[in-house]
Structures are given as structure tokens and as C-alpha cells.
């Protein structure tokens, strides 16, 4: 095994190394072999937006995933012509894994509520890289299934008693 990346003498504090550390901590990537994560760490880019700027827009096709490094972003949804804030995301959150797997028209708008810096990877790069390792596809899909299941389970545990109507509509894992 090539362990040069474990403790990289060529790139003590380079951005690639930092990206690698971040991706290894994200559930979506962590189960992949190191060679693959290295590829994604290289392919993702660091971006920044100012307060009020939009990362993705409701109804737009989303073709990238984000990992928030610094700052806060808020999720909005248009309700009866008015934009309604739903929740906020801070550093350490990974968003958009599903959009990496295939075309996805967004249901929400994500906007920076403070100056935001984030890591970003686009679907075209992700899919091309995945073609190199087709045997990994089941693992990636499994990771996504787990995420959805954990999300729904947590929702049930945390909000199960709050809203009868909402509970009646749940069941995303049965789709």
C-alpha cells in the first residue's frame, strides 16, 4: 500500500492534504479506498461566497455537493410566493451527496447568511472518477441509503410526537 498520503512529506500543509482530511471524515466518502478519496480531494475546489449570495436555487438542477468549512448557510423554500427560512447549516456539514449520483432538481434554496467558505465537488467529475472504480458503486449507494435511513430515524425519534399530519406523510425509506 502506498502510504505517502498518510503522512505526506511533500505537502505538509497543502490544500490537497487538508481536503483529504475533510473527505475522510465525511461518511459519504469514508468507506471508499484511500486511492479514491485522494482523487476526490484533488478534484474538489475551495470556494467562498459573501453573505446573501446563493449556492443553489430552488427548482434548479443541482450538480454539485458542498462541505462547509467556515460560516453559516440557511435553507429556504418558497411558500406561496414568499421565501421561508427552514434551517441553518454550519461548519462540518456535507450537503448534496444525492446530487452527485444523478440529476436532481432542487426543492430548496441555500444561501450564505454569513461569509462562507466551502469545499465543492461537481457531479461530472464525481461520475467520471467513479467510472474508474465501478465496483465501488454499490458502496456509495449503500452510504446514501444509510444516510437517508439515519435521517428518517432521527426525525422519528426527535419529532415523532410533534405533528401527527407530518408523521403520516413520512416513509422516505420506503420509496
Amino acid at each position: 500500500m502506498n502510504s505517502s498520503m498518510e503522512k505526506n512529506e511533500l505537502c505538509g500543509a497543502c490544500e490537497f492534504q487538508e481536503n483529504l482530511t475533510v473527505l475522510r471524515g465525511i461518511n459519504f466518502f469514508s468507506q471508499m479506498p484511500l486511492e479514491m478519496i485522494k482523487g476526490f480531494a484533488y478534484l474538489c475546489s475551495r470556494e467562498s461566497v459573501k453573505t446573501g449570495e446563493t449556492l443553489f436555487q430552488e427548482y434548479e438542477e443541482m450538480d454539485r455537493a458542498f462541505y462547509i468549512i467556515k460560516g453559516t448557510a440557511a435553507l429556504f423554500r418558497n411558500v406561496h410566493g414568499k421565501e421561508k427560512p427552514l434551517r441553518e447549516y454550519g461548519p462540518g456539514v456535507f450537503l448534496g451527496g444525492l446530487a452527485l449520483l444523478g440529476k436532481l432538481r432542487q426543492l430548496y434554496t441555500l444561501r450564505a447568511v454569513s461569509d462562507l467558505s466551502f469545499l465543492m465537488i461537481t457531479r461530472d467529475k464525481f461520475i467520471l472518477a467513479m467510472e474508474r472504480f465501478p465496483e465501488l458503486k454499490p458502496k456509495v449507494i449503500q452510504a446514501m441509503i444509510d444516510r437517508i435511513r439515519v435521517w428518517e430515524e432521527r426525525f422519528l425519534v426527535e419529532h415523532g410526537d410533534e405533528c401527527e399530519t407530518c408523521i403520516g406523510k413520512l416513509g422516505a425509506i420506503l420509496v
Binding site: 511533500l10 505537502c11 490537497f16 482523487g39 484533488y42 467520471l128 472518477a129 474508474r132
Partner: peptide, 23 residues
């Protein structure tokens, strides 16, 4: 030398696609 070594190490297993060489 460092750049070549790192790039070969990272991209060695990837297909020769233009998108992988943008960076």
C-alpha cells in the same frame, strides 16, 4: 519533482480524461 511525484501518485489510477487534468 515533487509536483510530478504527487500528481502521478494521485492521478495514476484515473483514466486520461481532460477534466482530471484541469488542476
Amino acid at each position: 519533482f515533487d509536483l510530478a511525484k504527487q500528481t502521478v501518485d494521485i492521478l495514476g489510477d484515473f483514466p486520461l480524461e481532460a477534466v482530471f487534468f484541469e488542476q
